[in-house]
Simulated assay, not measured.
Amino acid sequence: MLAKVARAIRNPTIIRRKLRWHRELLTKKREIARAKKYFTENKLGEVLGLGDANEFPPVVFDLVNLHREIRRRQSRYVLEFGVGFSTIVMCDALHKNAVEGRREGRLWVVDASKHWIENTCEKMPEHLKKYCEFTRSRAEVSLYNGELCHTFENLPDISPDLIYLDGPGGDDVEGDYKGLGFKTVPYKRTVVSADVLFYESTIAKGSRFLLIVDGRYNNVQFLKRNLKRKYIVKEFTELKYSTFELLE
């Protein structure tokens, strides 16, 4: 015990790291409690139906975070990489904005899996379907500035004001570069999507653009290296998401 105290005194970084970890843990507990309350008050459970038994279960905080941002920002052009419960919740946020007379928005979803797109379509409430457009596209290994990554073959022709990055999974990425790929077997390599970069140059000034990345630590670092404009970047380690907010 005394040895640990002595080491901490010699290296203040250890103390700062511990304090930061405890602060983030307290923040996580507080935010999860708030998210559960928001989830109930906004009746989000009523729009989330059951689908394929193998789909990832909904994470309340992640869903509330997306819903809250779209409501608060009155987002109009929302782009999602990946598909699932998040798709339905974001459509619900767009619907509630429209019902309240706010700016009517739309969600564009890109995914490589026909099965998971159909699964989401089938369980989505009818009144939300008009807010969503799906693009099924092949995802393939690529290079960007000499870095291994992957991109979708086809992208929606929009200028988004909010992007949610949560796909594709590695097993949906086809091909390789010099033998390097992203499928779980045999590569076990973390996913690194470059699709966001193709939209950056045409994002409108004053659009209050926000990028939300679900987990994907290596992808976040890749985007920090390659995005060219000025952003406030926040990484929430305990809550497992990051944000890039455009400062223009």
Rank of each mutant, 00 (worst) to 15 (best):
H150C: 15
D172C: 11
G175P: 01
G179S: 06
F182R: 07
P168E: 06
I158Y: 02
S159A: 15
L143N: 05
S159F: 12
L155H: 00
L155Y: 01
K183R: 15
E147D: 14
P156G: 09
K178I: 01
E147R: 14
L155T: 01
G170T: 05
D176H: 12
N145R: 15
F182M: 09
G175M: 10
L162I: 08
D176Y: 05
G175Y: 03
Y164P: 00
I158T: 06
L143V: 11
S159C: 14
E174N: 10
Y164R: 05
V173K: 11
F152V: 07
I158W: 04
E147A: 14
D166M: 09
L148N: 04
L148E: 00
N154C: 04
G167F: 03
T184V: 03
Y144A: 12
G146Q: 08
G146A: 10
I158C: 03
L162N: 02
I163N: 02
D171F: 05
L180C: 04
S159Y: 12
L148S: 02
P160R: 13
T151H: 07
G175F: 02
N154A: 13
L165S: 04
L143D: 04
G169Y: 14
I163R: 12
L162R: 02
G175H: 02
G179Y: 00
D157W: 07
K183V: 12
D171C: 06
L148P: 00
N145S: 14
G169Q: 11
F152Y: 15
G167S: 07
K183I: 09
E174Q: 13
T151Q: 10
D161V: 00
T151E: 10
